[in-house]
């Protein structure tokens, strides 16, 4: 049973900035956003990833339920990890951190249905998430990844340009993260690499590679596609406000 719809807050499109035209969007002569225009660039000539993005599928990315959906042959699980996913599925994914208003971590957040705003300035790519009104920082200022960091849900991320692709490395994850609703695990040994490529104004491709030898016998990759969400903005979403679902998450 798919539990995540239980924690979606049904917000109505009343008159906040849900329909405010986004400044600076290229438009066709009839005023519609021109998503096929070339990707914008910052003053230093790099692609500008800034914008409000949502899964291309409009709703959750299909990999949100099962991240292995498009991985030929399935994921290269260590035996304990395969058993864990089976056990979680058998128990109706009742311990999915999403259902307990916990952070989802950077991989699952790319797949989440709610919009996210990327803001790119020199030295920093900031991502603001509608889900739980939270944020993630990706440092582009040349700093190294920290050694022996305090573990976090999002870990620590540094990025640099490889041509027109932004390559981001992240480590320092706390143990026990879920990569999807099925409960595919990520451990504290993981190193996650993302490659962001904005191939035109309206489209962003994110290749994610998970290198986690505690849970998998070799690294594996997925691709995430997002599109611009023009002329709107994020709402506030506070998962733990008036939270009533948890007593019902009892599994089998």
């Amino acid at each position: 049973m798919n539990l995540w719809p239980l924690v979606l807050l049904a917000t109505t499109a009343s008159a906040q900035w849900i329909n405010y035209p986004t400044p600076g969007i290229p438009r066709t002569p009839d005023g519609k956003p021109n998503l096929a225009a070339p990707a914008p660039r910052t003053a230093d000539g790099k692609p500008d990833l800034s914008g409000l993005w949502e899964p291309a599928a409009r709703g959750a990315d299909p990999q949100f339920t099962d991240i292995a959906k498009n991985v030929a042959g399935g994921l290269p699980f260590q035996p304990w990890a395969a058993d864990l996913v089976k056990a979680r599925r058998a128990d109706l994914n009742k311990d999915d951190p999403d259902g307990h208003c916990q952070p989802l971590g950077l991989v699952k957040m790319h797949l989440h249905p709610y919009p996210r705003k990327m803001i790119q300035i020199p030295g920093l790519l900031l991502i603001l998430f509608e889900r739980n009104t939270t944020y993630r920082q990706i440092f582009l200022d040349g700093r190294p990844l920290p050694e022996d960091p305090q573990p976090g849900f999002n870990g620590y991320s540094v990025g640099k340009w490889d041509g027109d692709a932004l390559v981001v490395e992240s480590t320092g994850f706390k143990d026990g993260l879920w990569l999807d609703i099925s409960g595919t695990p990520l451990t504290d040994a993981a190193k996650v690499t993302e490659r962001y490529r904005r191939w035109n104004f309206g489209n962003l491709e994110i290749d994610i590679t998970v290198d986690d030898p505690k849970a998998y016998t070799k690294p594996w990759s997925i691709q995430v596609n997002q599109t611009i969400a023009p002329d709107t903005d994020m709402l506030e979403f506070v998962c733990q406000e008036n939270e009533k679902d948890v007593p019902h998450l009892v599994g089998k």
């Binding site: 917000t11 008159a15 906040q16 406000e241």
Partner: peptide, 15 residues
């Protein structure tokens, strides 16, 4: 330059 809308969906941190 946008203005604060009327009839706002109430939130903790406002608009």
């Amino acid at each position: 330059g946008r203005t604060l809308a009327k009839d706002l969906n109430p939130t903790w941190l406002g608009y």
